[in-house]
């Protein structure tokens, strides 16, 4: 399990680094959109959320199936609350270009969703492997 956790962390770090730099480059060079204030805060927030997800998921007792479902749903709820609140605060506090912000935030959200699903899937696969 520890190797899987480290692998997940490595993949997520690389993906977020690439995405953070790639989105900034695309905004400035390809779409020529003014990169909005506080942009680095978005990838950092998603990265920290990913770290919390991985650490919580790999610490929970995996022998109890009900607890695992509860943890999945709880993590999803926390994710929605945190990201929803952050997006609202961001829009009101920084007065950024709304459309650019929505596209960038949605992109990171989708990326995080992919990573989250992949992590859950990997954990499930590992549990099955350990049981067999």
């Amino acid at each position: 399990m520890k190797e899987l956790r480290n692998k997940q962390l490595l993949i997520f770090t690389l993906v977020m680094l690439l995405a953070g730099w790639g989105v900034w480059w695309m905004m400035n060079s390809v779409f020529h959109v003014e990169s909005f204030m506080g942009y680095p805060f978005i990838p950092v927030l998603f990265y920290l959320s990913g770290l919390v997800l991985v650490y919580v998921l790999f610490r929970v007792d995996k022998t109890n199936p009900r607890k695992l479902v509860n943890v999945y749903m709880l993590l999803k709820l926390i994710k929605m609350l945190v990201f929803g609140t952050t997006a609202l605060i961001y829009l009101f506090a920084f007065k950024v270009n709304t459309k650019t912000f929505i596209v960038v935030f949605a992109f990171y959200y989708m990326l995080y969703l992919l990573f989250e699903t992949y992590t859950f899937y990997s954990v499930e696969k590992q549990i099955k492997k350990q049981k067999a």
């Binding site: 199936p65 695992l68 479902v69 969703l113 699903t117 859950f120 499930e124 549990i127």
Partner: peptide, 18 residues
């Protein structure tokens, strides 16, 4: 069959989220 159910739960909720 908890493992299979969990896997389907995750995929379905990810789809709804997206």
């Amino acid at each position: 069959s908890a493992s299979d159910i969990r896997m389907n739960l995750i995929i379905a909720s990810a789809l709804i989220d997206a």
